[in-house]
Structures are given as C-alpha cells and as structure tokens.
Design a protein around this nucleic acid. Structure first.
Lengths: 363, 363
DNA sequence: ACTTGCAATGCAAACGTTGTCATTCATGGT
DNA sequence: ACCATGAATGACAACGTTTGCATTGCAAGT
C-alpha cells in the first residue's frame, strides 16, 4: 500500500504560488516577484529562471481572482460581440476589434472577447452581471438592444461602454446610464449627399439599410436633411430600404431600373450596398461612374480594391475603438467617480474616389 | 472644525459587504446570503428586504475579485494574432476567431485575444513563457515563425497549438513539439486544378501567393502536382507569385495579358487574387467566365456576393477552430500527460459557382 | 420536562496574491 | 575597523466574499 503522506499523492501540486515557492525552497514573495515582468528585476537572475521554468513545467498560472482582489482591478476588458457567425464578414467588427486590441495593448490591458449566450428567463441585467466577473470593463458591440434592456442597464455598476450601433433608433442617447461611443453617421451622410449635389446631381436615390438599425436610421436622416434643404428631396420610389448587404444593393438597384425616370446618383448606406448596386446596374448595361454616381459608407478594404474605386465615407473605427477603450479603462480605474453618461461622436470623413462624377460629364 | 472620528468622516462607507452589515447590525454572512438569489431564502424576509434596500441605496456591488477568488474562475485560452492592422480584412482570422469563440463558449472557456508585442532582446521562448502565465492554453495564429523560433519551442510545457499557416514552408510538421492544425491546402488545390482539367482546359495559369507563405507554398504544390500528372504543366510565364491581395491578382493578370498565348484558366491561391485578376482582365475587355475561367481559394463572403460568383475552395475554418480549441483544452487539462505532437488536416472542399466554364463553350 | 428538529444567524477560516516593512549579507568608502 | 549603502529575500498582513460549522431560539413531538 502506498504511503498516504500528502507529499506522495499523485496530484501534481495543483495551483498556487506557495506550492511553487515550497518546491524551490523560497518564499512566495520571491515567486510572485519573479513571475511579473515589472518586479522581476528584483529577483536574482538565476533564481528567476528556476522559478519561471518550474512555473511552466507545472503549468502554473496565477489565479486572476486573487490578483484582482489584491490589486483592485485586473487589466482586462471584454468585448461583447454578436452570436451571429457572420459578424466577422462585416469589416465593422474586424476593424473595431483590431483597434481595440491595439489600444488595449498600448495601455497594457488584455482583451477578452465573448458572445452573450442569453439565458432564457434571466433578464439582461443579470446576464451582464454574470458575464464580466473577471473583467474590469465591458464594451458592448453585440446585438441591438431592445429598449427594455437598455433601461435595465441604468445603474449598472461596472465600467460599460455601448456602441451606438447597438441601440435601437428610438432611444435618446442622453437617457442612458452608460457612455456611448459612435460614429457621426449624420455628419458623414450629409457630406455624401452634399458631394452629389455639388456634382450637379438633382435626382438622387437612397439605398438604405434596414430601418431597425440605428446606423441606417441616422444615415437616412443625414441624407434627407441635405437633399431636402437643397430642394431635391427624393421621390418615394427613389428610396429603398433593405439589408446591409450586396443583395440589398442589388435589390434596390433592380427596383430603380424599372422606373421611368431614375436617379442619376445614389447614396448607399453601406459599401456593400454600393457594390451590389453597381453590379446590378452593370448587369443591365449601365456603368458607374459613366451612367450614374455612387457614394458608399464605411470605407472597407474593397472600397479601394474594387473598380471603380468607391467614393465613400470613412468610418474611423480604430479611433472609435481607441476612444471606447480609453473610456472603459477610465471607468474601471477612476475609483469612486461615477462614469458620466456621455456621447462621443467620431467624425466620419468623405473619401472621394472614382465612383462619382459630375453629371453629364463625358469621361 | 469637524470631528475627526472615523465614523463621522464624510466617506460614504466605501464598498464592502461588511460595511453594509455593520450599518444594519447584522453579520457579513447574512448580507452575503441575502444578496445572492440562490441563498436569499435563508434570510428572513424582512431583514432581506432591508439589506437589499441598503445595498441599492449605497450603490453597492460585490467586489468581483473577491467573489472570483472564492468561487474559482473558468479557464481561458488565448489566441495570438498578428500585429498587422489589416488582419481582420482577411476573413481568415475573422472566421477562425468566430469559430474559436463558439467552440470555447461551448466548453465554458473564455477567450483572450492578443498580439505578440515582441519585446526587444527577449527571445521567442521567453515571450511565450510570459504569455503563458496568463492563460491556460495558447493558439498561435500570428506572424509566420522563423525556423529558429519554432525550434526554441520544443519542450515548451504549456498547452500550445500552432496554425500551420504560421510555419515557414521548409519545416516538417512532425519535427515540431506542439500540435499543429491546418487546412488541407494540397488537397484543396488538387481539387481546383482537377476541375479545370475536367472542363477541358489545357493552358492553365497559376496566380500564387508569396513564396514565404506556407499556405501559398502548399497550394502551389497541389496545383502543380495535378497539372503535371495531367501532362499540362504550366509554362513558367504562366506562373505568377505575388501578395495575397487584389493587387497581386491584378499584377498577375496584367503580366498574362502581355503574353502571346495566354492560359484559358487560372488557379488563384486566394479569393482576393482571383477578384483582382478578373477585374484586371475586365479592364482589358476580357470577361470571366466567357473568356477565361478562374478558381479561387477561401470561399470568403465575396465569393458569393460578387459577379460572377466565384468557384473556389472552401476553407473549413470553423471546424479548424473547433479542432484547435479541442486540442488546446485537452492539452491544458490532461494532467501530466505530454501533448502529442500531431497534425490535423481539415479537408478543403471545392465549391463550384459561375467563374468556371468548360473551354470553348458558348454561354 | 426532555429530546428533536428546524429556522435564522453569527463566527471564523479559507481563497491566492501582493505590497510594506524588516532582515540579512556583501560591498565600498572613510 | 566602522558606517553607509544597496541588493536580495523573507515574514506577514491585508484584499472582500463565501461557506462549513456552531449557536441560539422556538415550536412540536414523546
């Protein structure tokens, strides 16, 4: 029968800085110091190496809970993304995430990423509670929130930033308890419409996103404002609302192609819609920009890679992410200070390329 | 002058279950129990209400660190992605990441994501050592590793999975200390080339990726193998190597356009290359698939959205991610057991769409 | 009246890490 | 020889919750 002394048990000394310390005959303090880069210099080189090696061999990693308890925060923020498999196809998430990653790294924070597996029954607040136990801040970038959920969020204690795209169109941003970051959709849309006006277009169509999306809603408002002020409000047949996809763009353009008098230019709420529209028109023998002009929205990678290169509105997503990260970290580290609900709008700049042309101009 | 006794200080009893308890003259245990739904029934109703009310009024929320320390944490795995701003534009990362997220969530693991801020001086092994401290398992998906780095990794004890795309072409996978996951590039490339052969093409060009990339290398091998066996090895002018981008495709196609006898079909190592090629040809008046056929590789979102819809090879990235997550978790939880170095190839299936056509066929 | 059982609560020991302070020992300057 | 300096380390007390166990009443069963 094997001896029953604890030391001989098969368990590989599970977890713990103290076990590591014991194995090496040093104190836990020393191990703790050796393990963290910022204090590692305090430990003699040889000993440090021994500690690191043993830690690796034992597959040790310090308990984040304990660390967090001790230090107050643990430098980790969580980005909540939608469940949808396809989110990454939209460059929005990719670019935002990439920006987050860099901004966080610059501040020495880690980035968690997770989806929200909404548990039936549990209300949204509860789900959020459960979510971020091990992080000090949350950036919400996921499914659009129903109004009720947004209201439950008021008084949520941890550092939480919402992306404005995730809010339903109806809600006033000021009413929300958390900071909200977003791109200046209205301003961007205004620039797009203004450009078309300046180029002499008077019949301008709108290929919009789904009315449930706040982004779509705001962009529409921006387009319409400029067109109406310019006295060229679009006929109702010139306004099409569909999904934010090439299919949406195709459907919209096909609808326009059936009309007797068509727009000479289109504001598309999205690059993908723009590509779909251009392509559907091409199938009907119409070329952009020879026969019509198009302005997109996003400035994704294909805006430059496609032909014609797309005139579009640049979403400053990395700046947006930078801002979100800054706010969330501030909220997580500013001790007592309540986080001010505030709105940050990042400007959206027009990028002029080859899909727009003054009306009636020969190449 | 105000009294200086601690009880009368202005501080609003910052944080803490004990302060709440003190205010109500009950023990911390009771407060703790009252605060959590699952134990709330242990506390007398009236008292519970009092506690909850005070907690609300004091804007109390339990210290997540302490709670975490008590309850234990779920383990995390870390995905290492390249520093490059643009990685998310390549759908590879997005889809892989999305798959990782789902696979990890299904097993109740959390996902970290980080880049490798290579600190000057520190060698790769050391960097990994530090990285490994904060996580239970690592999936390496970042910059291609130089041979030296790969060798340093031998004997690394933590759970680490490498994506085959991150290895330099020259290295034999069996020689590596860690499990490697990857897509069956060779098989996929074979299918692509075989399809073109079957459609009757005999002059087949290759628009490849950069020779430093293992993916490019393997795909090239797959194409060539089939073509050579079919007796239609491409002339050297028909083989072009460039970046994995539309620009690469454009450059390649433009080179082909200058030749007297051009290929009638092209294997492109990448969807983007394929799009670039199609577009460059169109600029010269050649239409796909009327005048030439193209097969891509990846099956990204634009493969279906563009016109012609692209015949391409589907990379089973979510399955790949699933596999990687499975392996990394296994490696992290199997106690003493060393992780077997092994290679997992996920099959890559051909998806036939509209960019390929039998040679000489009228529409 | 004496168990017995139950409900409500308090006590105190973890949980694993880190920062402060004190201790030890070697070094170099006077 | 003595003190000052500094590097390397150890001892120890937090950090705020949770939970097993002990305690106290109180009601019901014998």
């Amino acid at each position: 029968m094997p001896a029953r002394t604890p030391s001989s048990s098969g368990k590989p000394t599970r977890a713990g800085i103290v076990q590591i310390a014991a194995r090496l005959g040093v104190s836990p303090s020393t191990v703790s110091r050796a393990l963290r880069p910022e204090t590692a210099h305090l430990v003699e080189a040889e000993r440090r190496k021994a500690i690191l090696d043993l830690a690796e061999q034992q597959r040790f990693s310090p308990n984040p809970g304990a660390r967090m308890l001790r230090k107050g925060v643990n430098p980790t923020l969580t980005v909540v993304v939608p469940l949808d498999e396809n989110i990454f196809f939209s460059e929005f998430y990719g670019r935002f995430l990439s920006g987050t990653l860099h901004a966080a790294a610059a501040r020495d924070w880690d980035v968690h990423i997770c989806t929200l597996h909404a548990r039936a029954g549990a209300d949204f607040r509860e789900t959020m509670q459960h979510l971020g136990l091990d992080t000090s801040g949350i950036i919400y970038l996921a499914e659009p929130l129903p109004k009720a959920a947004v209201e439950q969020l008021r008084g949520y204690r941890r550092s939480l930033i919402l992306a404005r795209s995730c809010l339903p169109p109806g809600i006033v941003v000021r009413d929300i308890g958390s900071p909200v970051v977003g791109v200046d959709n209205i301003g961007g849309a205004r620039s797009a419409a203004s450009l078309l006006l300046q180029l002499g277009h008077r019949r301008i169509g709108l290929l919009l996103g789904p009315p449930t999306s706040r982004d779509a809603f705001e962009r529409k408002a921006g387009y319409l404002e400029v067109l109406e002020r310019g006295g060229v409000a679009p006929k109702s047949q010139w306004v099409f609302e569909g999904p934010f996809s090439t299919e949406g763009g195709r459907a919209g353009m096909n609808a326009m192609l059936k009309l007797e008098t068509r727009p000479t230019a289109y504001c598309c709420a999205n690059d993908e819609i723009a590509f779909g529209a251009i392509d559907a028109a091409r199938a009907a023998g119409l070329e952009c920009p020879r026969d019509f002009s198009v302005v997109g929205f996003d400035d994704g990678m294909w805006a430059t890679a496609s032909r014609p290169a797309l005139t579009t509105v640049r979403q400053p997503l990395s700046e947006l992410a930078e801002r979100a990260v800054g706010l969330v970290i501030e909220g997580a580290t500013a001790p007592g200070k309540a986080i001010l609900p505030m709105q940050s709008d990042m400007p959206a700049a027009l990028v002029i390329r080859d899909s727009t042309r003054a009306i009636g101009t020969a190449p």
